[in-house]
Design a protein around this nucleic acid. Sequence first.
DNA 1: ACCTGAACACCGTTCAAGT
DNA 2: ACCTGAACACCGTTCAAGT
Lengths: 236, 236
Amino acid sequence: MSQSPWQPISPPKPPRPAKAPLTRERIVDAAMRLIVEHGYDAVSMRKIAQELGTGPASLYAHVANKGELDQLLVDRAAQQMKLSDEPDPANWQEQVKDYMREMLRVMRANPGVARAAIGQVPLVEHAMLSTEKLLAILKAGRLPDQAAAWAADLLPLYVTAVSFEETVQNASNWTPADVERFVGEMRTFFADLPADRFPVTVALATALTAGAGGDERFEFGIQVITAGLASLAEPS
Amino acid sequence: MSQSPWQPISPPKPPRPAKAPLTRERIVDAAMRLIVEHGYDAVSMRKIAQELGTGPASLYAHVANKGELDQLLVDRAAQQMKLSDEPDPANWQEQVKDYMREMLRVMRANPGVARAAIGQVPLVEHAMLSTEKLLAILKAGRLPDQAAAWAADLLPLYVTAVSFEETVQNASNWTPADVERFVGEMRTFFADLPADRFPVTVALATALTAGAGGDERFEFGIQVITAGLASLAEPS
DNA sequence: ACCTGAACACCGTTCAAGT
DNA sequence: ACCTGAACACCGTTCAAGT
């Protein structure tokens, strides 16, 4: 119990604790690392805790639950969106498309975030700031208030759904060759269906399996939606 | 070991086993009952087994895994779609909308199915038959092959995403009064945001929270997409 | 061939106890 | 105030053993 004369023991205040203290920031960092590297299903409270060298219970001092963590991941991703353009009434349709392209780019860069985002109204700061930008573009395009508001719901819904689909498809790690083989099998499957019950499906077998991996299908989607919105714009 | 003289024991072949035998059909029945009554998260292999008075391992003789079961649930729902109309070139836009309305009706009648369907290409019989009908309508509308094929992907994607959103929102069992209170809170939240950073959001607070529960928002979505498709139709 | 119990390797969340 | 170990009530799936 007596202090050793040889060396001072247990210095009263070690300059810093060996472990960095747990923070909301560090928890989201770890979660983001896990989701990007191993997909949405790899993100569990337990895995995050393990990544941080602690137990799952420790996280609950900083994050209410898994749902809140999902929201924080969406916020992180939203922060990465580059949206510098001023709304331009003469160019609003192209700006809407660029917004959607940028959103898809960020979601692809953070696979699994789409899964965390889907079905949630994003009430976190950076997600709301990007929605604000989108609304400004839509109003510059002379859409009525109600159309602009619902469009600001429809557009991200579409991008998120597309990204989600890609995430599910790309689960595990398929090579481009695997994808091509799978698409080929699907085309054969469609083409070989009984033509009396599936006449159009058989006839369109090639078209139905085109543009699976690339951007053409997405470009088609944003073209359709943007053109539909344009038909609702008020005359200037 | 000797047989009792008092009564015949263990009659060699009881006319029928006490329990009805497990079948794929009965498993999907039980799963459908669970998903409709308690939502997607209530459907687990263990709960289904319990519902059928057996253990989870028994299901794997009839169903490969949870993913296949999800597909079977989607097929069951697709079977409920009423799609009697002949494709009518003069009326194809309204037919597309009716198709989407019918799909949403069935998904609302089977809450949780949207969650099972999202992100999966539906390669089950009845889902494919309904897709065939949709493709026929789109071709009647003189859409080019590629546009028809991608539209047959886009339209169900939108309906499924809307239904999924509703499912998440309606999780647990909110009364209409609860929904109204929540919408009111959200409107106040938007309206009270700092106007310098969120000018458009603040201005559109009412529009952004309109039509949350009802069909108006969905009607807007199908109007936009259908109008966008119409702009791609070939001249007749 | 079909069914079963038991086990494996996981989940999210809570809570009393520690510092 | 923050962190922890242990527990609670769950998951999907596998497998050797039974009939």
